[in-house]
Design a protein around this nucleic acid. Structure first.
Length: 554
RNA sequence: UGGGGUAUAGCCAAGUGGUAAGGCAACGGGUUUUGAUCCCGUCAUCGUUGGUUCGAGUCCAGCUACCCCAGCCA
């Protein structure tokens, strides 16, 4: 892939350039901070490419940090899959994997500092009361009756929280900021809540867990993060991020910058909705090839290169966006066009018999790539009985149809020119066999008499072909923006997965799992992990660009 | 009706006061034993109104549209 790329330009890099120019930093430090509550998807890939990409470019470092402050939603399986996906995408984090939970002791200490400064208090208001006192977007909030509890009392209360003396929901630690702020997140936000939950990293050590807004900025500061990059919905939270950092005793001053999250047509990129798809079994797990997850795309046949290229092409801005699927597809097609060896496979077989071919089967030589000779050749068996695609034959057709037509000629890819002589049909009138003749002087050359053969079709020898299950994927949803729909299930595309029982040339039996391959005239495929010695299974990664389908929709 | 943000082509996106990059898509044409690839060509005055300036996508003001915020989620 064209990696000889010019350095991407975006507003974040411009900020960093300026910071460096002003001598603010000697080294750039970023972080990728997923919550381990699901698999990584393309939206995360965008963030990963941004954060790790910036670190690479500026000779800095990027940390991988699990933002694991909510044990009820998180799971160790996710921390494993996330590490695997980041590595697969081609990035290496600095040192060990970090966890926000690594800092629970320090976080606790900073909470005590805020209490001691009279900037945090324990509130026993019910959730309903608290919501009422918070006010609304246009109406200021009202101070809680617990707001003026003494420091000593708060210290004691918070310690009791930590010791498990209060029930979940009974109380929480809040920052004392401003109940009239126009930033809702500044109206005395929660800092710690009580949760008697087992944590995948800290076990049962804690029964109080810090909130995101309190944790993230401090974790950034502890790790020496210089530029903390997140998505647009955290813009308001930046005020709280800065407030926390400036009211505790910590040296580093990380700065938060926000960019717009990725939206892709005909899919969803929200962890909540992806979890729904998996849990309600609308797809076959997180790595279902229809999923926009890194695991799903990988199984589908997308390469890490192509995903990185995609992230480069979509850019980084603060503009709400909806990227077309064609952008993603162009990235994988570009790479696979140059790298995938070619082969022949018939998805919906129709038998043809070449009546004047009386020889034994012969092995023809076929190029593995039309323009890259270094990819070599392979042998393809040719015999009297072959399979071609059902859609590649018509009894009659206009001249625009460049395939096999009764009484006309067509080129068999890598082989001879044949002519359809007659058809055989079953009782229902379906064509069962097409009888043909071949021109034995057309192997590797045009007919000597100068007649032109317009079309080329692919084929597989009946006797040598191997049966294969071929899975064709289409968009998961029927609407461009399923995320905006009332009900996700209503817009699931019932034809997002079509299974064909096809036949493939023998060379495909031995291709490794997940290696890319182009089925000529059909698309790019890869062998699925479901394949076994008894059963071949191929996934279609993406079809070939098809201008014929556009002028001739079936 | 409060606050925070954003508006450049069908989509993504450069542009940082000097006369609108690039990619995707689309549409023409050429090559082709993949209706693929490849090659050539076509495709915008910058949400809107006004102002400043010799000169405005870039600066200023008003207007409009869209997104985010009232979790003990992140």
């Amino acid at each position: 892939m064209a990696e000889a790329d010019s350095r991407p330009s975006n507003f974040i890099r411009q900020i960093i350039d300026k910071d460096i120019q002003q001598g603010l930093h000697t080294q750039i430090q970023t972080r990728f901070p997923p919550e381990p509550n699901g698999y990584l998807h393309l939206g995360h890939a965008k963030s990963i490419c941004l954060n790790f990409g910036i670190a690479q470019e500026y000779q800095g470092q990027c940390n991988l940090r699990f933002d694991d402050t909510n044990p009820e939603k998180e799971d160790i399986d996710y921390v494993h899959s996330i590490q695997q996906d980041v590595s697969w995408l081609g990035f290496q984090w600095q040192g060990n994997v970090r966890y926000s939970s690594n800092y629970f002791d320090e976080l606790h200490g900073f909470a005590l500092e805020l209490i001691n400064k009279g900037l945090a208090y324990v509130d026993f208001s019910s959730q309903e009361i608290m919501r009422e006192l918070r006010g609304s977007l246009t109406r200021p909030g009202t101070n809680s009756p617990y707001r003026d509890t003494s420091v000593a009392e708060n210290l004691s209360l918070f310690e009791k929280m930590r010791l498990g003396e209060f029930k979940e929901g009974e109380c929480l630690l809040r920052a004392k900021i401003d109940m009239t702020s126009s930033f809702m997140c500044m109206r005395d936000p929660a800092l710690y809540r009580v949760r008697f939950a087992h944590h995948h990293q800290t076990g049962d050590k804690w029964c109080i867990y810090p909130m995101y807004d309190f944790t993230h900025c401090i974790s950034d500061a502890i790790e020496g993060i210089t530029h903390s990059l997140c998505t647009l919905e955290f813009q308001d939270n930046r005020r709280l991020y800065d407030w926390v950092i400036s009211h505790i005793s910590i040296q580093a001053i990380p700065r938060q910058y926000e960019f717009s999250r990725l939206n892709l047509e005909y899919t969803v990129l929200s962890k909540r909705k992806l979890i729904q798809l998996v849990e309600e079994q609308l797809v076959n797990g997180w790595d279902d090839p229809r999923m926009p997850t890194v695991a799903g795309l990988r199984r589908r046949g997308y390469t890490a290169d192509s995903i990185r290229e995609f992230c480069k092409r979509i850019g980084v801005t603060k503009i709400d966006n909806m990227v077309e699927m064609s952008m993603l597809e162009a990235c994988i097609r570009e790479q696979l066009n140059s790298e995938a060896p070619r082969a022949m496979a018939v998805l919906e077989p129709l038998k043809i018999v070449i009546e004047n071919y009386q020889d034994e089967p012969q092995w023809l030589t076929a190029a593995n790539h039309p323009s890259d000779e270094t990819m070599g050749t392979r042998q393809v068996p040719f015999s009297k009985e072959l399979f071609i695609e059902i859609e590649d034959f018509k009894e009659e057709a206009n001249k625009k149809f460049k395939r096999l037509v009764l009484g006309k000629e067509v080129r068999l890819r890598n082989a001879y020119v044949i002519k359809a002589e007659r058809v055989e049909k079953d009782a229902q009138g379906n064509i069962t066999t097409v009888y043909c003749s071949y021109d034995k002087d057309t192997l590797g050359k045009d007919p000597a008499d100068g007649r032109k053969v317009k079309g080329v079709i692919h084929w597989v020898s009946v006797a040598h072909g191997q049966g294969a299950e071929i899975r064709l994927y289409d968009r998961l949803f029927t609407v461009p923006n399923p995320g905006a729909a009332e009900n996700l299930i209503d817009c699931i595309n019932p034809e997002s997965l079509l299974v064909k029982q096809g036949v493939v040339e023998p060379s495909l039996v031995t291709v490794p799992i997940s290696a890319p391959i182009q089925f000529e005239r059909t698309g790019y495929f890869c062998k699925d992990p479901d394949s076994s010695a008894q059963k071949l299974v191929f996934n279609r990664t993406v079809g070939l660009r098809d201008t014929w389908a556009k002028v001739n929709p079936s």
